[in-house]
Design a protein around this nucleic acid. Structure first.
Length: 560
RNA sequence: UGGGGUGUCGCCAAGCGGUAAGGCACCGGGUUUUGGUCCCGGCAUUCGGGGGUUCGAAUCCUCCCACCCCAGCCA
């Protein structure tokens, strides 16, 4: 376990017995969207820390704004946390469960002269708040009597007022350099139905008023949150102190940012709403459900979260690291199969007509325990268009006129002739010859060739739709570029490419969600949404590293 | 110009007064019936900058610079 500053703090707290040797964290999402990879960092941190120190981690929904929250999100969030591999056991909580307690505490603060009902409008409150450099002004309603505040607050609760007519504010300090301390709003009037409490309430606590107390109620020891709440901490401490209740320790860390994508619920919601993607679980989305559908494993995401570390400096992690974690995991577990993405027909002229051989193929060279399977081989096969060049560049070890290659698990073939469309010049098929003495496994010390191709026997090939994904965004955009209306402008128009391909027959009954390595190409999984009994659809999870592409690229630049 | 933070290799990130971990990326080389995997090697005389303390500083002091967050009845 690599050290990080939070582990260091908790370790020290354990040594000093600060919380009686107890560690209780929590993951507190608002159910207003789907979870994404950034949340995964927080989930892994909170649940991971609890596990590591023999403590517990709660799942609590911070559902204090009925205008934005939905049941659908509550379900998806639970599914995603579970899928990531974490268990909150019986500790599923909702801030809305604490509404009564919160109300009573608000009354308590009014009674001690620490809170008051304000009649100022939203605009007026903003004006009175002052600016970053100018202190605020006290509201004319700030010094109402306790009795009047009590009566007014109760009337607020009882629905006597319209939305926005009054708020309850904490009475702290309008001159504070920290704007959060300039009499923050605790309750607003919202005549809205809540997904859990229905119409019971028409006043709802603000996050700042609900969050710290919710942590306190749950006896949280370490309340881990992101950097932007750092200057809310004095406010949370103020509430806790004036209420005289259990004080959790808040620790802030930098949220995750990833290159080539956007991690903001607001923007992801927009992508969904504008129909620019196929829902929250579109395989291009950085959401947990999107990554799951794309074929990511929970193990790889957890590994990623461990490797990026936890610190307080704002940073942008290279997507390449996530992909590395994925490949590393999939390399060990994904069965190898053959699929031809862009088919090119090859006829092996000296191979007997109508003969079909069943060749043996290992399922995973990384794990002999995964066994072998039979592959049909015949006179007509498909290879990938990329594996043939009529005029091969230097170091092109694949097929070209007169050149030899090994067909994986089969024979060595030589390209004898290229059949082209007379008019367009398009390459229609290749005529090859094979060397019967080179059958895979039967030619010890036989001839060596530099290239090995994947292929599929034409007769037995199973048609499949293959979806190739590219980064959603052409260029990384900063998260706050989102205030501009056209923040979606850099969306990559080629982020999805759909191919009609052929896969080997063993894949015919592949289960939805199952993952494979298509030899020499990448990792793919059976799409769980578009696959049907008569249509196989694969998502490319991530390509294999491609050093030929690099060589070719550098050759190209040399020529310039 | 107020308050709160952060600055260590292209990207993350350890380090907490004893002379710069690790990962990703990148660049070589080896193995290979996946141009995959794996293996081996390279990759910060320097820690935002200037002063200072010390035998010794990325670590302590000091001044400066840069960047991020805060003016929702959002979270």
């Amino acid at each position: 376990m690599p050290p990080n500053f939070i582990r260091t703090i908790i370790t020290a707290d354990m040594e000093t017995n600060k919380y009686g040797g107890r560690v209780n964290t929590r993951f507190p999402p608002e159910p207003n969207g789907y979870l994404h990879i950034g949340h995964a960092k927080s989930i892994c941190l909170n649940f991971g820390l609890a596990q590591e120190f023999g403590g517990r981690c709660n799942l609590r929904f911070d559902d204090t704004n009925p205008l934005k929250e939905e049941e659908e999100y509550i379900q998806s969030i639970q599914e995603d946390v579970r899928w990531l591999g974490f268990d909150w056991e019986d500790r599923l909580y909702f801030a809305s469960d604490y509404f009564v307690q919160l109300y009573e505490w608000a009354v308590q603060l009014i009674k001690t002269g620490k809170a008051y009902v304000d009649d100022l409008t939203a605009d007026e409150i903003r004006e009175y708040r002052g600016t970053l450099t100018k202190p605020g002004k006290e509201s004319p309603y700030r010094n109402r009597s306790i009795a009047e505040n009590l009566a007014l607050f109760e009337q607020m609760k009882n629905g006597k007022f319209k939305n926005g007519e009054k708020v309850l504010r904490a009475k702290i300090d309008m001159n504070s350099g920290n704007l959060n301390m300039r009499d923050p709003v605790m309750y607003r009037i919202l005549h809205a139905s809540h997904h859990r409490t229905g119409d019971k309430w028409c006043i709802y606590p603000m996050y700042d008023w609900a969050h710290g107390q919710s942590d306190s109620i749950e006896k949280i020891t370490h309340s881990i949150c992101t950097l932007e709440f750092e200057d809310h901490r004095p406010l949370y401490d103020w509430f806790i102190q004036n209420l005289g209740i259990h004080a959790p320790q808040q620790i802030e860390f930098a949220r995750l940012e990833l290159t080539r994508t956007v991690l903001s619920k607001r923007k992801l919601l927009k992508l969904v709403q504008e129909g620019m993607v196929d829902g929250w679980d579109d395989p291009r989305m950085p959401t947990i459900s999107g990554l799951r559908r794309r074929g990511y494993t929970p193990e790889s995401i957890r590994d990623f979260c461990e490797r990026i570390g936890v610190a307080k400096s704002n940073s942008v992690v290279d997507l390449a690291l996530l992909e590395h974690c994925l490949r590393e995991d999939l390399n060990k577990r994904a069965p190898r199969v053959m699929a031809v993405l862009r088919p090119l027909k090859v006829i092996i002229e000296n191979y007997p007509l109508n003969q079909i051989e069943e060749l043996e193929a290992v399922n995973n060279p990384e794990d002999p325990g995964m066994g072998t399977r039979k592959l049909p081989f015949s006179r007509e096969i498909y290879i990938d268009q990329d594996d043939f060049r009529e005029n091969p560049p230097k170091k092109f070890f694949r097929l070209a006129p007169g050149q030899e290659v090994r067909l994986k698990h089969a024979y060595i073939i030589r390209c004898e002739k290229v059949i082209k469309d007379e008019k367009t010049g398009e390459i229609l098929e290749l005529r090859c010859s094979y060397d019967p003495a080179t059958r895979s496994g039967d030619d010890p010390g036989g001839k060596k060739v530099k290239g090995t191709l994947h292929w599929v026997s034409l007769q037995q090939a199973v048609p499949a739709e293959i979806r190739l994904y590219d980064h959603l965004l052409d260029n990384p955009v900063s998260d706050d570029a989102g205030e501009e209306p056209d923040f979606l402008a850099p969306i990559n128009p080629h982020s999805l490419e759909i191919l009609q391909s052929f896969v080997e027959p063993s894949l015919k009954t592949a289960a939805a969600g199952s993952r494979f390595q298509f030899l020499r190409q990448g990792y793919f999984c059976v799409d769980s949404k578009f696959t049907s009994p008569n249509k196989l659809v694969f998502n490319r999870t991530v390509s294999l590293r491609d050093s030929w592409a690099k060589i070719e690229k550098s050759q190209g630049s040399e020529e310039k």
